[in-house]
Design a binder for these strands. Sequence first.
DNA 1: TTCATATTTCTGAAAAGAGAGAAATCATAA
DNA 2: TTATGATTTCTCTCTTTTCAGAAATATGAA
Lengths: 175, 175
Amino acid sequence: MGMQITATQRRFIRRWGEMGTRWGISRSTAMVHGYLYLCREAVNAEDICGALELARSNVSTSLKELEQFRLVERESKAGDRRTFYVAVADVWEMARRILEERRRRETEGAVAAVNECLRAAKDEGDDFTATRMEAMQELLSTAENVADAARRYPTSIFRKAALMGGKLLGLIAKL
Amino acid sequence: MGMQITATQRRFIRRWGEMGTRWGISRSTAMVHGYLYLCREAVNAEDICGALELARSNVSTSLKELEQFRLVERESKAGDRRTFYVAVADVWEMARRILEERRRRETEGAVAAVNECLRAAKDEGDDFTATRMEAMQELLSTAENVADAARRYPTSIFRKAALMGGKLLGLIAKL
DNA sequence: TTCATATTTCTGAAAAGAGAGAAATCATAA
DNA sequence: TTATGATTTCTCTCTTTTCAGAAATATGAA
């Protein structure tokens, strides 16, 4: 008994899928996420196929990716061998997890790679190049440190910080 | 007289290009940027072609995209009709501009689209859907507000904030 | 204006990515 | 353990993106 979606929900999901493509997430994956976000209770993969008219395999792959992002959670019902899925409902937690996973994918190995080049440039006595690479290196590792620190705090802080917006920046400026 | 690149620089540029693809920037575009970042002085398009072995057209398109990101600036030399290019040298300013342009591309029109769906859901009396869409809407518009605020502050603040890292979050937690 | 050269846009081919369906694997009730 | 059905992986096709080369356009000196 999968949720049958209304035209409005379909429109939202389609939009969400469209946005996903611009975020480096496949359209199907983002649509599956959009659907789950609009579901009241956990649904199984078959339900998703029915509602979104996607191939079963595609839904499977999408769910796997969403689990990597930690945007959906599995659930099992007694006497039912199928897996059910729910989306993280809190949008701030959602945003945080998306950003965290993206950061991970996008800077994975970068620090090490730049470091390697940096050492080579230094060995060759190419000061200018070394300086530039050093700056890049500092940026990348700071980004990693910030992400690490961020992981240790509850979502509520980010919500607070975001809602303070400019005021917070003004505060920092005075430090 | 374009700069001839060393093996180390080539390695760095190749890496940078690779990273670019994960950031939704084409390999060539990221490579052109990497090259400019390692240049001491402004270079022209032909130089870039020579150093990176890319088609002239490709370099042209890449430079145009980099200008959209505001990562490179044009320069003209007296008695030379060609255009010369330099990359923004400060990595923090660079990061800020990349994030700003990405944010713009990735949330462009999203608030309006979600708002439209939200109104429809409300009209239909679908409270659950409306609530979820409202939350999403709040998130997206807050993101836009933060970005707007961020644009008004100098780069130095972000560097400061990033280097404070976890300490800053701890501070906010106490507010 | 004309010529020479710098730059951009157009076009098509090659590479990468997405997604459907089939085949294989895995898990659980009996 | 076996049978049944859920899930994942594989493969092939279709779509999208990237990028080289050609054609068109723009710019500036004479």
